[in-house]
């Protein structure tokens, strides 16, 4: 039994990954007379992505059930934050009912769940979108305070980082353009908007490419290790067993 528990996940992982890798090198079969292997690889390439999306929805479902269980336990234990757990549960269940029953908008189950006028769209516009934008906009304040502490020009590296960030920022706002508008036409490449463009086009491109190639090599190595069964954690499902 323990062999089944340990080996089956690794076999599934390896077979699925190898089928997908092989499918990238095989042309799509035309007609039903194509060899079985070719049809199998085309099937894998076509279906596995859909199955992955279906599993992602089940993962959401698992997350939702966990959320209900966690907050119900907090309410039952009468902890100090039970009111907020109740808020989470009510918002969660409310939107779940609104969305699953397709309330509002075009009639019944036939309508588009995101159609204008549907309650789910109203929830998105009135609650989700403002909260999302405001929570992310809060970072503007924290980035400002963090950069003040982190970007003091104490070395060549931090000076370059600071200068690059400042030029990019100034190059994208009208005030930045006014600052260097006095520079004569012959030296226009020294204007902040030109410098900003040059940084994005040359050193930033070089750095991004180095990062992308480095990350790609890392991802490929990790994928090979997972397929070969060398990587421990993914096979064990993250719980180390």
């Amino acid at each position: 039994m323990s062999g089944l528990k340990q080996r089956v996940p690794q076999i599934i992982l390896t077979v699925v990954a190898l089928l997908l890798i092989a499918s990238a090198f095989v042309v799509r079969p035309e007609g039903s007379n194509a060899p079985f292997v070719q049809r199998l690889l085309a099937f894998a390439d076509q279906e596995f992505a859909t199955w992955f999306s279906i599993l992602a929805v089940f993962a959401f479902l698992l997350g939702g059930l966990n959320l209900i269980a966690t907050h119900l336990a907090k309410i039952r234990d009468c902890g100090p934050d039970r009111f907020y757990s109740l808020v989470t549960l009510v918002s969660f269940l409310g939107v779940l009912v609104i969305g699953t029953a397709k309330l509002g908008g075009p009639p019944g189950l036939q309508g588009d769940v995101t159609a204008p006028g549907s309650w789910l769209t109203a929830v998105f516009d009135a609650v989700l979108s403002p909260l999302h934008a405001t929570l992310y906009s809060l970072l503007a304040f924290y980035i400002a305070s963090a950069s003040y502490r982190a970007f003091r020009a104490r070395s060549l590296e931090s000076s370059l980082l600071l200068a690059s960030a400042l030029i990019i920022l100034l190059g994208r706002i009208p005030a930045g353009r006014y600052l260097t508008a006095w520079i004569p036409e012959q030296l226009a490449f020294l204007r902040v908007e030109e410098l900003s463009l040059w940084i994005l086009r040359v050193p930033n491109t070089a750095g991004q490419r180095a990062l992308m190639i480095g990350i790609a090599l890392g991802v490929i190595a990790l994928a090979v290790r997972m397929i070969a069964g060398v990587e421990k954690d993914p096979r064990s499902g993250g719980d180390g067993s």
């Binding site: 929805v57 939702g64 959320l67 918002s91 769940v113 998105f124 909260l131």
Partner: peptide, 24 residues
């Protein structure tokens, strides 16, 4: 805290519903 918990509940349910109707 109230807004934060509303965000957690609403976003979890919203994406679950979207996943159900668009994929499942």
């Amino acid at each position: 805290k109230f807004a934060e918990h509303v965000f957690v509940g609403v976003s979890a349910a919203y994406w679950m519903v979207m996943g159900f109707w668009t994929t499942l």
